[in-house]
Design a protein around this nucleic acid. Structure first.
Lengths: 223, 223, 223, 223
DNA sequence: GATGAATGAGATTTCATTCAT
DNA sequence: AATGAATGAAATCTCATTCAT
């Protein structure tokens, strides 16, 4: 186990270095050499741990899902004494926070969803190719990809049980509507993040508005 | 002028070919050769009309804005007899339709916004580099980039005047909230478009829900 | 046609450059860059004409077969007034000469034979991989690979008709026996070719002996 | 000595593993890692015993010569009561068998001969480079390389003494002629060895023919 | 003795861009 | 205007070899 965890430590170090440079320069504009330099190792070392650039990206995707799941669990844990509505709003809030703080993760999640949904013909402009399926992380990600959704859906159910959520729409639809808001929000803010406003609107105002709207329509029996 | 319009015809043909292949394969995965082949001309010809791949993408971006503006104007024209609320809902509806039918355009708009907002340092993973600023289309796009927003805002104003829109939030915030929904919706559907449902939710159901929600919160005085 | 032949001229120039450096340094030890330098062009140019290093080798293989066929036809033509035995001895002689003068061709022929005969499992040490099958030249070579053999067999038949060849063995066996001698002869001489003797035997003596033995056993009714 | 033989045992194990993978994949396509894996040790261990990949190949070459010599001696021993002609035919027969059963050895012998004959400039496509000369096995091989030939030549001499061999050619020429046949035979059969015929000729038929021809021309006073 | 992580030179291949015709 | 051959910088990936533990 010592040996194995040693390997894991290095793998994680590489992933973290990769996250740093991918975040700064983007996947396409980043050379494996850049990742190596960031960590102060040689190119070969990166390839010793990750068989390809895509595999490395897939590992990041895995971490993205893991991180989101962790975030969701923590949120749910924090609000377990409150009603389901508050639990869900909490999840939503942490979802936004997560996406804002980890734009790369947010992108990775999105890329993966697109990839899984896409057939071979007509692939869009993603970093992902068929080679990705050969990544050892591909299966791992597939195994956990639905956990965030399920946590979300479970909170809706809880809210319905305790009467705090009155919206009668299909739970999945609520999830999609909420997720889309977050994605749009994050995408439109996708820059180096120095700016604190857009179209003269404070980003924090916008963020709060999304959460408020979410709460509103969850409570709305006509929702 | 004859010469000039002849040039325009060719330019447009190239842009259309580029749109086709970019849509299919994405910007990064498309070679200039592919664009040339699609149109049945040589690579040299493409470069005769467009100084770089980036410039070509910028031309597409320009068309994307033009097209969105046109779409918005048509929508507004169609609903000018109705109240502002309906005008705005119509704009929203056409916005979604536009984005669904032109994923590439939708991406281009987003890329441009990101690009403009970003400082030079810390550019994200966009197809857009500094070379973009040198594009002859860059200035042109900057000149019209705010028109869609302004149309949207004007309809809000109209709705407020005629009492159909009661939501008291800053108009720009409403715009951002609406736009984000559309972006999220489109992004999550971003595949070859063969699928008609996601998470067991019909896409049309989702689309209608977004429009319904938009209408709801525009009318809501507490909105 | 002018255009096409222009392309062919360049292709041939590249092939000839490649033959030169492959002969000198061997396939594995030769970089595409070396081929480019030999011709005074850039690496990219080589790839403009040949999609891969293997494809280039396959093109050489094609030339090898073409050249051998040409050599055989010329030999047959030269001896058409003589009996079949002499025709066959002539072919044999030119076969040896061909192999001595074109060691690279001789290797290429051998590699191809091995490749075609081999199944996927257990490929031997050749420059050839499965990628080779994707070479545009692969099919072309397959189409002509049996011509040399057929010429050889036809001469045996002619010799039997005119009574000059009395050996009663299966024609194919005769071919294999003769070919093996040539291959062994060439392989054992496979060096830069400066030496004129081996084991104190003059190479010319050895060569003549092979031809003499061939003639002997073709005439031998007990052969 | 205990230490030394322990070392030898390990060296032999490595050589055998190397022979296995080189036979299957060829020298060039085999990574040191593959050799290590085959034996279930680490790459470092291989390097502890063999200074380089070339050196390892040289060790195999040494074994190839040893094995051939052993084979020859056994054959000679078996036929010492018979006439020299039969002794020589026996050697030939075991030579063929040896080469068929150990294609890698057969290649190694050939590579070594080529290497020794070649000058530094103009080395052909062998796995062998100048580094080979630095191999500790290089000298060892040089010391024994002529033994097979000498055994062969000695049998010819014996056959001439007892009158069973009447062929008057230089003994070395006879050796070369015989060896070439074997090399050609083996090279043309160089595949995974599943096929039992080539050009509709049974390989066993061909093999027997070579032996028969060898006997014939050894007896032939005009040979 | 043995390990396997780390190195880094080098190989193949790609492709936006240029330019002679 | 148009062509497409040519360029060459750069990217991904390989692997024999080294070396700290």
């Amino acid at each position: 186990m010592a040996v194995h965890s040693k390997r894991n430590i290095k793998e994680n170090a590489i992933i973290e270095a990769a996250e740093k440079v991918f975040s700064k320069q983007g996947f396409t504009n980043t050379k494996m050499e850049d990742v190596a330099k960031e960590l102060g190792v040689s190119k070969g070392t990166i390839y010793f741990y990750f068989s390809s650039k895509e595999n490395l990206y897939m590992a990041i995707t895995y971490r993205a899902f893991q991180s989101l799941i962790e975030t969701f669990y923590i949120s749910v844990e924090h609000t377990k004494e409150e009603v389901g509505l508050e639990g869900l709003v909490g999840v939503m809030r942490s979802f936004i926070k997560f996406s804002e703080e980890n734009f790369l993760y947010s992108e990775a999640l999105l890329d993966f969803i697109s990839f899984v949904r896409s057939t071979n013909e007509g692939t869009l402009d993603k970093k992902i190719t068929d080679a990705m399926k050969e990544s050892s992380y591909y299966e791992r990600v597939k195994d956990i990809q639905n956990i965030p959704i399920n946590i979300f859906l479970k909170e809706i159910e809880r809210g319905r049980q305790d009467g705090s959520i009155l919206n009668k729409q299909k739970a999945e639809l609520i999830y999609l509507y909420a997720w889309a808001s977050v994605i749009g929000f994050v995408k439109l803010n996708a820059t180096s993040g120095k700016k604190t406003s857009i179209l003269k609107v404070e980003i924090s105002t916008w963020r709060n508005y999304i959460i408020q709207k979410t709460r509103d329509f969850l409570k709305d029996p006509e929702g």
